[in-house]
């Protein structure tokens, strides 16, 4: 299967020169046509910045810069002139954000906000737009779509707003949907409904999904493959089964340990000791070594490259690689 989106050595810097902070460092992964990829990591691991970089929504004016290659259908988005990006945003790649409460324009009706997405991508006919908006609202399960078109965001609950966001994102039938913590701000039952909706959409429309979450449970529910990020770097990429059954990176193991399980008797949940170093602050060695229970001397000296652990599993850890005799992957540049 060919990759719909492929990132190669993508780095995002904040600031310039010596003092530049490398918030995302050498991230590489692929999403297949119609595939679902999860991007997991703690807060500050660079997940959101990576996804914003794909749409080139990183505020370059404030001193951010993106390097590497972000290929969408073979076209490097970073090479495109800035005024071509609006054609891709919303039409080919759509995005849903974390905050359903603040991500909709408070002074526009939800109908006109969804309609605007269509208007921007070649739907000049008002009546057709109207029909499509109603269709989308119905698809995401908003009751009485006709009657709700003229309502404002503040008249909806958080879950309903997130549905509106999804309807807006899917209105132009994008090839890729980026969902940045799309269910995080919702309570558990609503979260489950929205996840069901996303699964339905994936199977109905064949839209590829890049699901960003700090919640492995959510990722496991919806994704075929997972990318684990830590401190701006990819530490493990694997299909969801391998990741859950034999995580290769100690950080991934820590994440899995800290997921609460049914029938498990425990005083406290496991937590990875320490906290995430600020992205870009570790300039030598493995950024996880300070919190790692298996770290050896080598980890402090040299950043581990990606090792191949299985057909569809790679991770960046010296110790795990030595234990399972995994070869270094060279061709990811």
């Amino acid at each position: 299967m060919s990759a719909l989106l492929s990132l190669r050595s993508v780095s995002v810097n904040f600031g310039r020169g010596e003092k530049a902070l490398r918030v995302v460092d050498g991230v590489s992964f692929d999403i297949d046509v119609g595939g679902t990829l999860g991007l997991v990591g703690e807060s500050g691991s660079g997940k959101s910045v990576t996804s914003l970089a794909v749409l080139r929504l990183i505020p370059e004016r404030l001193g951010w810069s993106t390097r590497g290659r972000i290929e969408f259908e073979g076209q490097n988005l970073l090479d495109l002139p800035a005024d071509k990006m609006p054609e891709i945003r919303g039409r080919d790649i759509a995005m849903i954000f974390q905050e359903p409460m603040s991500s909709l324009n408070p002074v526009m009706t939800i109908g006109s906000q969804i309609s605007e997405a269509l208007f921007l991508h070649g739907w000049p006919n008002r009546a057709k737009r109207h029909a499509r908006v109603v269709e989308m609202l119905r698809l995401v399960g908003i009751p009485d779509p006709e009657g709700r078109l003229g309502a404002y965001p503040h008249q909806f609950s958080g879950g309903m707003r997130q549905r509106v966001m999804i309807a807006m994102a899917l209105a132009c039938s994008p090839k890729l949907l980026i969902a940045d913590e799309a269910t995080t701000a919702l309570d558990v039952t609503i979260q489950a409904q929205v996840l069901e909706l996303m699964k339905k959409i994936r199977s109905d429309t064949g839209t590829a999904i890049l699901m960003i979450s700090h919640d492995l449970g959510v990722i496991a529910d919806i994704c075929d493959r997972v990318v684990v990020m830590y401190s701006g770097r990819v530490v493990e990429v694997a299909d969801i089964r391998s990741l859950l059954q034999r995580p290769a990176h100690p950080y991934t193991r820590g994440l899995l340990e800290s997921v609460p399980r049914k029938g498990q008797e425990r005083e406290r949940l496991y937590q990875v000791p320490g906290s995430v170093p600020m992205a870009g602050s570790v300039r030598q060695g493995c950024p996880f070594r300070a919190r790692c229970s298996v770290a050896v001397d080598k980890c402090a000296v040299k950043m581990p490259p990606m090792f191949r652990f299985a057909e569809d599993q790679r991770a960046a850890c010296w110790v795990s690689a030595e234990q399972s005799n995994a070869p270094v992957i060279e061709d990811l540049k």
Partner: peptide, 17 residues
């Protein structure tokens, strides 16, 4: 700097809009 402005950009609105 608000989220909904980012949403507007993400759906493909150009700067003047």
């Amino acid at each position: 700097g608000k989220d909904y402005v980012r949403t507007a950009r993400a759906k493909g609105a150009r700067e003047p809009r």
